[in-house]
Design a protein around this nucleic acid. Structure first.
Lengths: 227, 227
DNA sequence: CGTGTTATTGAAGTGTATCAAATTGCGTGG
DNA sequence: CCACGCAATTTGATACACTTCAATAACACG
């Protein structure tokens, strides 16, 4: 890893949106002292399913996908996290190995905060514990909803949902058919055919690998998302 | 609701296994003062999806299922909780409405602890916050695994898994085909046929509505559970 | 400029839902 | 306690959405 100017928490752009944003100067300095930075190229793993959790990853820039594989090798993307997100805190608190692997989707820059430093911080800052609880609860809610949709929605419906989620949360990135399939729990072929259908109806537009949403309302309908 | 002798936390049998087991006398008394008890008949709802979370349910006895429904009415059982479990704490911390409904499976006896009392307790007891974090992390891990299995395993595989989970965690209860289907994300008919297959191979035995696991090892194999 | 990955299209097979009807079993009230 | 009625169970037939396999084409990468 190349030596690079150390990023400081109190000037880190991604901090503003993160869970650690309300910490005082002392706490931030403590993190600064304990953490170390790492960079990953697309496709590289931050950690692997089955590994013990040794700390917390704070995403400074880039996108990370969390994925699981079954014994046949089929991959399911569980979550996708961008700048400002914290990764790996679940395994930290449950004291269990990671169930998912974390993979860089594009060039990723993270700060790694060792487990001991994180736990100390949480123990000494009750409001921070509550923030973690809140964040984890929110993630849990999403996961429950995904389980429900996985078993009650059709493949095209889940693909529509995937498009909305991936495109709106990570606009810059052009996801592959394979990644869309892995998020939606289906195959690249089915994604293909569904995308062709959606384009035929003018709901999306494909130019090469880039997908543009033309009719968001109709796509929401297709995804069975009613708000 | 009939007047009944108030259950005290420090003599409550289910407490020994719960999250609140390490609390001191003062805290337990505070809960005792704030809580009130409720009983539900099978099929009755403790709360409904969409409701705002007003507190925490501590299961004294009985079994509660947490389920979600899609717009067509198809039900998915998300979790099943028995004596000693806490229910509804996720919505408490994320400050969002319940996404699932809680339904009594058999006669249920719970203590309801109002939100304000719980949050006060958590704020004043950092170790308790960490226990909640740990519990929530554990629940999250299960949910992730269920999502993965929902999208990569076949219906018979998920049914085998359902049998193991439901039968081993709640031995006394004879689950209906419908409930097994709702847990496994399939239909009662498919559950039927799978049960017939499993019985034909001597893996389980059905006597009326009661299912007995004869060959646990083979059932684990069927469920694609390898430890 | 070659090589491996991704995209695309087609054809075939099958797992599982859906629908329908008969039977059993259970709880409720007479 | 029995009978009734309704819900759960069981079995069969049908349909079709989706995966799987295979083969070509386009692309990105070193």
């Amino acid at each position: 890893m190349a030596a690079n100017p150390k990023t400081h928490c109190n000037t880190c752009e991604s901090r503003a949106y993160g869970l650690l944003c309300d910490l005082g100067q002392n706490e931030l300095s403590a993190i600064d002292a304990a953490k170390f930075e790492q960079k990953y190229k697309p496709g590289q793993n931050l950690f692997y399913s089955g590994n013990a959790a040794s700390g917390l990853y704070c995403v400074v820039s880039g996108t990370v996908k969390l994925e699981m594989q079954d014994e046949s090798g089929k991959t399911q993307i569980m979550q996708v996290q961008g700048a400002g997100s914290l990764i790996g805190y679940r395994a930290l608190f449950s004291d269990q190995p990671y169930v998912a692997s974390a993979v860089a989707v594009d060039p990723v820059h993270v700060c790694f905060i060792p487990k001991t430093a994180v736990l100390k911080l949480v123990q000494e800052n009750p409001p921070l514990a509550l923030k973690f609880l809140s964040q984890l609860s929110e993630d849990f809610r999403m996961m429950e909803q995904r389980l429900q949709r996985a078993s009650s929605n059709s493949a095209p419906e889940r693909i529509a949902e995937a498009l909305l989620f991936l495109r709106e949360n990570f606009e810059e990135k052009n996801w592959t058919r394979k990644e869309i399939a892995e998020w939606a729990g289906t195959t690249p072929e089915t994604v293909m055919r569904t995308l062709a259908d959606l384009e035929g109806e003018g709901i999306i537009e494909q130019t090469g690998r880039k997908i543009t949403i033309k009719d968001r309302a109709k796509l929401l309908e297709r995804a069975k998302i009613f708000i």
